[in-house]
Design a protein around this nucleic acid. Structure first.
Length: 213
DNA sequence: ATCCCGAGGG
DNA sequence: CCCTCTGGAT
């Protein structure tokens, strides 16, 4: 299946600044709306971006604001999000999340990690997506492809997501934290995949110790 | 068959 | 540490 491909982006590294340049990104959400991004990120667990994008228009038409989602009937919400998988957990998380925003954060998405992780359905990875993409704060969504990220960093035994975040964070230009996070996610999902890494599409071959090119 | 854009719970 | 929850992709 050797298919020659034109690399679809490039990478440069200057001092400690790393820039990933892929052509663009896929999430059709309004990234300036933290509530929508948070809900979509909860939905995205173990699920492709394409499928999340199929349900979000209906979801936000039905529940435009945290106040609306907080009062959703579980069965109706489950029906809307069913195709994203884990739909019972996700429906419970979404309703709990909305209630938390309304009850404890004035209907807004909090920016502090300590606050975010107290919100139902929000772990460190989801919190970092929201922080970087919606709020422009430091934060890297280090998920299950952390092992492959460790490969990129030249780390052999270090698989701790927090350590990886600490190593990568200073390399991300402040003005493109959100973009970097989205591209990092896409890179783990579409290029540096577990089984058969698509090194021919990867922009990091020049300094990836595991490059097959 | 196996892995995933996770998080909560035992 | 382990397990569960779901559907889809490979």
């Amino acid at each position: 299946m050797g298919r020659p491909r034109t690399p679809s982006g490039r990478a440069r590294e200057t001092n400690r600044r790393l820039t990933l340049e892929y052509p663009d990104a896929v999430c059709e959400l309004d990234h300036g709306n933290p509530f929508e991004l948070l809900a979509a990120t909860i939905l995205s667990a173990q699920c492709t971006d394409v499928r999340v994008n199929m349900v979000t228009p209906t979801l936000f038409a039905r529940y435009p604001l945290p106040e609306d989602l907080a009062q959703a009937a579980p069965a109706e919400l489950q029906e809307i999000i069913r195709s994203t998988g884990f739909y019972q957990n996700k429906a419970r998380s979404l309703i709990g999340m909305a209630n938390a925003l309304v009850d404890r954060f004035g209907g807004e998405v909090p920016g502090a990690m300590e606050d975010l992780v107290t919100v139902p359905g929000v772990g460190r990875k989801t919190a970092n997506v929201v922080r970087s993409v919606a709020l422009g704060l430091p934060g890297l969504p280090v998920d299950t492809h952390v092992g492959r990220l460790s490969r990129l960093l030249g780390l052999t035994t270090e698989m701790d997501p927090v350590k990886v975040e600490m190593e990568l964070n200073p390399m991300v230009p402040a003005h493109e934290r959100g973009l970097f996070s989205l591209r990092l996610i896409l890179h783990g999902r579409r290029v540096c995949v577990a089984r058969r890494p698509r090194c021919e599409d990867c922009v990091l071959n020049d300094f990836c110790p595991s490059s097959e090119i």
